[in-house]
Simulated scan of single mutants.
Amino acid sequence: MNIGIVGLGLIGGSLGLDLRGRGHKVLGVSRQERTCQIAIERGAVDDASMLLSILTDVDIVFICTPIFAIAPTIKQLIPIISPDTIITDVGSVKRAVVEAVTPLWQNFVGGHPMAGKEYNGIEWAESGLFAGNPYVLTPIDTTPPWAVKRLEEIVRSLTSHVYLCHPEDHDRAVAWISHLPVIVSAGLIDACMGETDLVVLKLAQQLASSGFRDTSRVGGGNPELGVMMARYNRDFLHKSLLSYRQSIDNLIELVEQEDWQGLEKRLQQTQETRSQFYS
């Protein structure tokens, strides 16, 4: 199968490595010639160009651009590709994307691979990035079933765990487990940097190990991605932030009142329920 990838960063490059490894011909598009060359050298694509015209004969196109560029990119693709071409994206927000793109292209299937790193760019692309991780597809009533089936087969070949759901349900869910953690993690880093005693701050930085590294990782990632999450999933992220603030306020109250029994009970609850988020 001929597959196109627009946007050769971490996700696009990793997709290319895996898809080529499964025998597909992969053609890539990037805004930078240097990225095209690196993608070719690393084996992420068979060929790459700064021009969308390289994708004339592809069967599926993965749009791996920032969220704001997805619809404009598809508008540019429409005169180039066949009417039977399937288009999908990898954006972390689905409702806004699906609403914007579906009127433009009937064979569009929203997608979101739940995998990544705190770093971006073709240099960080790796084979097997999606293996064992969730990959969400968000078809709607008007999405052609054959397009969903074909894309699902491709995604399953990456050994991802495929989930199909409505775009709005996706956005509500990821607001809790993806978008909220980014903002909370960023807040943790920001709060730590508020320490006014420079000696204490320096010591904290020197002592920071696995606990701080784990909880601060997503807050130290690509700022553009964080802004896109908040901008395009504002309503659901806002709701989750308010709920989180209430939870923090409750914990503050327990500490202020020296209610150690109550705090222990709360921590026991979180210890027991955390496993429900991991299968």
Rank of each mutant, 00 (worst) to 15 (best):
L10N: 11
L17M: 11
L17K: 08
L19Y: 12
G23N: 08
K25Q: 14
V29A: 07
T35N: 13
C36K: 07
I38Y: 01
R42S: 12
A44E: 04
L55Q: 05
L55V: 12
I63G: 02
T65E: 08
F68P: 03
A69K: 12
A71I: 03
T73V: 10
D84P: 03
T85F: 10
V90L: 04
A96W: 06
A100M: 04
T102M: 10
F108H: 13
V109Y: 05
V109G: 03
W124T: 13
A125Y: 10
L129C: 11
F130D: 01
F130E: 03
N133R: 15
N133Y: 00
P134V: 00
P139M: 04
I140N: 07
V148D: 12
V148C: 05
L158W: 02
T159P: 01
S160H: 02
P167L: 06
H170C: 04
A173S: 14
W176S: 10
H179M: 06
H179C: 09
L188W: 01
L188C: 02
I189T: 04
D190E: 14
A191Q: 07
A191G: 00
C192L: 15
M193T: 04
M193A: 09
E195F: 06
D197N: 15
V200F: 05
L201N: 05
L207W: 08
A208Q: 06
F212G: 03
D214W: 08
V227S: 06
R231G: 02
N233G: 15
K239H: 14
R245D: 12
R245V: 03
S247W: 05
E256V: 10
Q257E: 13
L263K: 10
L263G: 11
K265F: 09
K265S: 14
Q271L: 13
T273V: 01
